[in-house]
């Protein structure tokens, strides 16, 4: 076979690997009514108030996670690049830890550290628990966020741009807010997509902190109903991709993304 045919074969295999389960799930979700395709399962899901509540909760959480992750990661990665390049391996290692430490360990650690009889009783209030959950999500998304931002910073001359801004009288907040962040926005966005997807489907943290997130809801439906979980999966999948698409469009509106493409 020609090389081109090989690449097509690999592409088709890959495509099948991703698409077949989706197609299967979609097909199954339409079979609620015996003998014909119908949208009954979807109607059920959309009529369930819990669906709207949990999904809304998770979307808000995802957006907050992205914002806080950005506020944490962009200045850190910038500072490491500018002032402490030798610390980069260390910081990279720290950001990788969430990949090797299971979320269940992280959340048990949180609960031990921040329970109601601890020095910082975050789990004592709903707000505190929500905050804790969000910080947990920020931790889970660190490996992706940090790497994305660090790669983005590599494409600009961080040092000279910083010095140019400084010589024009700018302080750190102005430099990060007006120069660094807008120039790594595309990279931040690609980190944000992954973060969004992680948070929407996350189960362990939300379940153990007992928050009404989408992950535990999916698990609940999956354990109790037949066709609805499949419909739910398809809906969640579509909405997640729609949200990511929206972010993609938003990031393309910025001038420097036009610059990078031309």
């Amino acid at each position: 076979m020609k090389p081109k045919a090989w690449s097509w074969l690999v592409f088709l295999l890959g495509f099948a690997y991703f698409a077949l389960p989706l197609i299967g799930t979609l097909e199954f979700s339409l079979r609620k009514r015996r003998g014909e395709y119908s949208l009954d399962a979807y109607v059920w899901v959309f009529e369930d108030t819990q669906f709207r509540e949990t999904f809304g909760y998770s979307v808000v959480m995802a957006l907050l996670t992205i914002v806080f992750g950005m506020l944490l990661v962009v200045p850190t990665a910038y500072w490491v690049r500018l002032r402490y390049p030798r610390l980069r391996p260390v910081v990279e290692f720290i950001t990788l830890l969430p990949l090797v430490i299971p979320p269940i360990v992280i959340v048990f650690g949180y609960i031990r550290l921040y329970n109601t009889s601890s020095f910082l009783p975050m789990t004592g209030t709903t707000f505190g628990t929500n905050l804790l959950l969000m910080f947990g999500y920020v931790t889970l998304s660190l490996p992706y966020m940090y790497r994305a931002v660090d790669t983005g910073l590599r494409t600009i001359d961080v040092r000279t741009l910083t010095e140019a801004a400084q010589s024009l009288g700018a302080g750190w907040v102005t430099i990060i807010g007006r120069i660094i962040l807008p120039n790594v926005l595309i990279a931040v966005m690609s980190g944000a997509f992954v973060t969004f997807a992680i948070v929407i489907g996350e189960f362990v943290l939300a379940a153990l902190l007992n928050r009404p997130a989408f992950g535990p809801y999916m698990q609940l439906i999956g354990a109790n109903r037949a066709y609805e979980p499949a419909a739910l999966a398809v809906i969640a999948f579509t909405i997640t991709w729609f949200c990511i698409g929206l972010m993609q469009v938003a990031s393309r509106m910025t001038p420097q993304s036009r610059a990078k493409r031309s």
């Binding site: 010095e163 400084q166 010589s167 024009l168 610059a259």
Partner: peptide
């Protein structure tokens, strides 16, 4: 600090803000 000196600088690599 550099931002308090009111000294203008032009760099070899131009260093224009791309955004």
């Amino acid at each position: 600090r550099p931002n308090q000196r009111n000294v203008g600088m032009v760099f070899q690599s131009y260093a224009l803000f791309p955004n």
